[in-house]
């Protein structure tokens, strides 16, 4: 049996385990939450939001929505979804069974990590589709909002979301390790929420560029002021490094763990 077949069967199983779980629904609920709020706001106050002639209404609609929801919401969402997905395993006392199977431990750790990342990417995709759909519906209901007369600049917004996702990788690595290690989900959840809030508070300080829980906010708020490392945003670089280091350390730690 090759490494790849172990990995594939691990991924396959993670999908079966997600069936009918709250973690699965959370990806959808989180994705449509803000688009619904913006839909209601535009629907009720469509006169004030009607753009001047020739102005693309998507620009304001998309930018405000992404800038005001993603930076604050994504860290909380990651903390929650990571704990929930690992909780499926802990609740079923699954680790002792999995680690007694003829399956390499890395395939279990990284298979699960892949699913967490997949769930987060799915949420981004749902979110983007939900915004487009809500804008389209608003255009149908109130033609004066002009959503049907213009095309959104997809590339620009997808780029914004991608930057936000990469900036979140760092805390995915940390939160996944914590959630795997602690059966009691209060530990990763409590610590994660606490650090996410700290991350928002300290994001004004220049040193926050080294604090992974601030990266999500910084990736949007710093804009052009973002320091670069070899031409790449330093938040992106630090986030990827943090993800790689915590994933590898997390795996080495889990591998040696006594499963009680």
């Amino acid at each position: 049996m090759t490494a790849i077949s172990f990995y594939i069967s691990s991924i396959k199983n993670e999908f079966i385990k997600l069936k009918r779980t709250f973690a699965f629904w959370l990806t959808i609920i989180s994705a449509i939450l803000f688009p619904i709020l913006f839909f209601i706001a535009y629907f009720l106050k469509h006169e004030t939001n009607t753009p001047e002639a020739g102005i693309n209404p998507w620009e304001k609609f998309m930018t405000i929505q992404i800038e005001n929801s993603i930076p604050f919401f994504i860290p909380m969402f990651i903390v929650l979804i990571t704990s929930l997905i690992m909780q499926i395993e802990h609740k079923s006392l699954g680790l002792k069974h999995l680690f007694a199977l003829p399956v390499p431990k890395w395939s279990i750790y990284f298979g699960k990590l892949s699913i967490v990342i997949f769930a987060i990417i799915t949420t981004y995709v749902y979110y983007y589709l939900a915004i487009l759909l809500s804008g389209f519906l608003l255009g149908l209901i109130h033609p004066d909002l002009a959503f049907l007369n213009f095309q959104p600049e997809h590339l620009k917004y997808i780029n914004m979301l991608t930057i936000s996702f990469v900036a979140s990788l760092g805390i995915i690595g940390i939160q996944f390790w914590l959630s795997f290690r602690y059966k009691n989900f209060i530990v990763p959840l409590g610590l994660g929420m606490f650090l996410a809030i700290i991350g928002i508070i300290v994001s004004q300080a220049p040193q926050s560029i080294y604090f992974p829980y601030s990266f999500s906010v910084l990736s949007v708020s710093l804009g052009d002021k973002m320091p670069l490392i070899l031409g790449v945003s330093s938040v992106t670089v630090f986030s990827v490094i943090c993800f790689l280091v915590t994933s590898v350390l997390g795996y080495i730690h889990i591998k040696k763990l006594n499963i009680k």
Binding site: I16, S92, P102
Partner: peptide
């Protein structure tokens, strides 16, 4: 170790997939 939100067949399928 059983996944309580799944049925017996799914639980066995998971174990079978791991073992290949």
């Amino acid at each position: 170790s059983l996944y309580e939100h799944l049925d017996a067949v799914d639980n066995l399928r998971i174990a079978a997939n791991y073992r290949q």
